[in-house]
């Protein structure tokens, strides 16, 4: 199974090589653009802001990467003709995306460091309280969690969409059904996260991190991650546990759909 996973991972990385370089290209383009603007306006804050934007754009990295990768598979019809479990196939999609993501975010962080040393005078940095280095690192970790979380939703929606293909009436109404499902999911998600009992549950096992770094509010409402600026951070273990379970559940649900319902 390890050999099969290695093979899948290698294949998935090779298949997506061009997309990976495309991502790198976009980052460089943003940096060069930012650099030109900085030079033109003599305003180092622009460069710093661009770097932050590039960093935050990584929230969409893994979902987009996986979506592109799955759509290639949908074209060739060879992906599912495979004796390995759907879970393994999907795990390889996640794995390959994560590898590409890690390279991309490290690359971005290196660029950001370079920018910092080129323009140490930008006031922009003072917006971030505490140590710039640790804050940026914590931010990156938070972005990593969020992008994985979104990616699993993408896996689910993709399998759900393709499962509907051969269902008689639903087949023609796939998009409306998908959008309806998404609306219900968002409303339900908001309702739950804003309810009193949910707050109570997540208040169990809260760790108050006495950090002066830019707090990252891991309040992920299914569709958006808000990054707050509170000077202290509360990390709820239960909250984390709930999201972990949700991610695992969605992952296996997608695998089940692909195993049983998706037809080529």
């Amino acid at each position: 199974m390890i050999q099969a996973y290695k093979g899948l991972l290698t294949k998935d990385i090779k298949v997506m090589k061009n997309y990976y370089f495309l991502g790198m290209g976009l980052i460089l383009l943003a940096v060069v653009g930012g650099g030109l603007l900085t030079k033109y306006f003599k305003e180092p804050n622009i460069m710093a802001a661009v770097m932050l934007m590039v960093l935050f754009a990584h929230i969409m990295y893994i979902p987009l990467f996986i979506l592109a990768s799955l759509n290639i598979e949908a074209k060739t019809q060879t992906w599912l003709h495979n004796p390995n479990s759907a879970a393994l196939l999907l795990l390889s999609k996640l794995g390959s995306a994560l590898v590409a993501y890690l390279f991309s975010i490290c690359f971005t962080l290196l660029l950001a460091a370079a920018v910092y040393f080129l323009y140490p005078s930008a006031e922009f940095y003072t917006l971030i309280q505490g140590s710039l280095l640790t804050n940026t690192l914590y931010m990156s970790i938070a972005i990593t969690f969020v992008t994985i979380y979104f990616a699993v939703w993408i896996l689910f929606y993709w399998s759900f969409f393709h499962s509907l293909k051969n269902v008689s009436v639903a087949g023609a109404l796939r998009w409306p059904i998908l959008i309806l499902f998404w609306i219900i999911q968002t409303i339900a998600g908001n309702y739950i996260t804003s309810s009193k009992w949910f707050e109570k549950i997540i208040s169990i096992g809260v760790i108050e991190a006495d950090a002066k770094w830019l707090s990252i509010d891991l309040e992920v409402n299914q569709s958006s991650a808000s990054i707050g600026m509170n000077p202290t951070v509360e990390i709820s273990l239960v909250h984390g546990l709930i999201y972990t379970l949700l991610v695992i559940f969605l992952f296996y649900l997608s695998a089940w759909l692909i195993e049983k319902k998706v037809e080529v």
Partner: peptide
Amino acid sequence: TEVDIFYPSF
């Protein structure tokens, strides 16, 4: 399959 089974960049 009748359709292409290959990844084009391979």
